[in-house]
Write a protein that binds this DNA or RNA. Structure first.
Lengths: 248, 248
DNA sequence: AATCTTTGTGTCATTTTAACACTTTGCTAA
DNA sequence: TTAGCAAAGTGTTAAAATGACACAAAGATT
């Protein structure tokens, strides 16, 4: 055994997933609603996440945990950051919860966060395991989360925004067919600021990342908008050329 | 104890530091030269890094390890990524080394990497502990490293380049007084491509990030160049305004 | 005095960005 | 049927940023 207890290697490693979704209005995030503790605490939300196994690597763990807790599979997942503050599991409400689900609630746990972008309408979140209840929450309305998950969320959002300047990953949040207005609103939702409609469309057109389909919206009480799809080939071409100015 | 051995929590966590330095010519990186093993292996280099303690957080660990192994203290350190492949410690030459320095050489270890930028002339690397010998190596000449450290290096370089578009962190690599040519070469070294001299200077001037000093180079066999220093106040101002286009 | 090396500087053409308003389409309600 | 409503869709102009490009000036060396 090690000589000093500072180095007794009794560490846990977890992954936490920040799952962004878009409902054509606001940027949302998928959270686990935890049972309120003994006290009449307000409702309490946490990111989907869990300890990793010893025989899987980090990406595998993130995919597994996500599947186990939400049913999501084969989705875009990007590593975000590592969090390892000593006090990250020391809040009272969190400790009670840990005691109910962990063999070693006192274990010091370092977490690796991932973020993901999904089409909010394309899947049916299936709570399981200790994720008793899954809910989508608008990111902008979240003020706190369990553990240090609020920090993790903000970090992920920051990474997402930076990434969006370099890669057009936002398309992951949309269904296969979408309108330019939806795409426009998506960028505004992620970036948290307004973008001029004409300038947005001009740049999108120049990038040549979308293809106009011969199909329109139906049943809307106004001029129906045209559907588009993502142009994978052109995207690949741009990336191979080293192009990386996808920002607004 | 846990029910299944997949989840026995027997994990180690380490930090590895990618220390970039600049000698006014090439981008360099600080490496530990390991004793060749029993075989007549070629020389072998690794990133400074070690297991973290249970009573310190990640940033503390990175700072401590860096100080212990190199003598470097109070320097810019940015978290880069987490690496946790199952086979990252399975190379033969690495295992021999682990057996000589670790209590539990078989421990599965996940590492959090940090990168740092230092002025290569401003400190005297002091090898200690098991870092028997420290050397600077030009990044461009490195073809492989111990463990998965080559991957870690490339990831850090990628992060550094992305970061440089958003924040003028390159100044950390220079002494307090520097010439515009040195700054220019630094950007070229980090980005790995040539930049037009006049365009570079024009943009630097517009950003107003450097202040001209009333002092020139001496003893150079050509027109001496003027010294400048970094303008911290203007930098703060730009950041507060939300400006983030520092790229070239 | 001539030579050498690196510093330091300006212009022009092109591209990118920002600001800005009205017509069109299809549905809805009177 | 028609008037009104709501969102879609579209172009111009000015300002800023970028990219390409060449030569004179300074100081050291011979």
């Amino acid at each position: 055994m090690p000589a000093n207890n500072q180095n007794n290697l009794n560490n846990g490693i977890s992954v936490d997933c920040v799952i962004f979704g878009f409902d054509f209005e606001k940027l949302q995030i998928l959270l686990i609603e935890r049972e309120p503790g003994k006290k009449d605490n307000p409702l309490d939300y946490a990111l989907p996440g869990d300890l990793i196994y010893n025989d899987e690597n980090l990406d595998q763990a993130a995919n597994r945990v996500l599947k186990e807790l939400t049913g999501l599979e084969n989705i875009y997942l990007e590593q975000s950051a590592a969090f390892g503050s000593l006090d990250r599991t020391q809040r009272e409400s969190d400790r009670a919860w840990l005691e109910s689900v962990r063999d070693q609630p006192d274990l010091r746990v370092i977490t690796i966060s991932y973020y993901s972008l999904v089409n909010i309408n394309a899947f049916d979140p299936k709570p399981s395991s200790f994720a008793s209840k899954l809910v989508w929450k608008p990111v902008a309305e979240i003020e706190d989360l369990a553990f240090d998950h609020f920090d993790i969320l903000n970090q992920a959002l920051d990474n997402l925004r930076n990434r969006l300047k370099i890669r057009p990953i936002g398309f992951n949040l949309l269904p296969e067919k979408f309108t330019l207005s939806q795409l426009h609103k998506l960028y505004e939702a992620i970036l948290g600021r307004e973008l001029d409609k004409r300038n947005f469309r001009r740049k999108m057109a120049k990038l040549d990342l979308v293809v106009r389909l011969d199909e329109k919206q139906q049943g809307v009480p106004h001029k129906p908008s045209n559907f588009y799809k993502f142009n994978t080939e052109n995207y690949q071409k741009l990336i191979e050329e080293g192009y990386d100015n996808f920002g607004f």
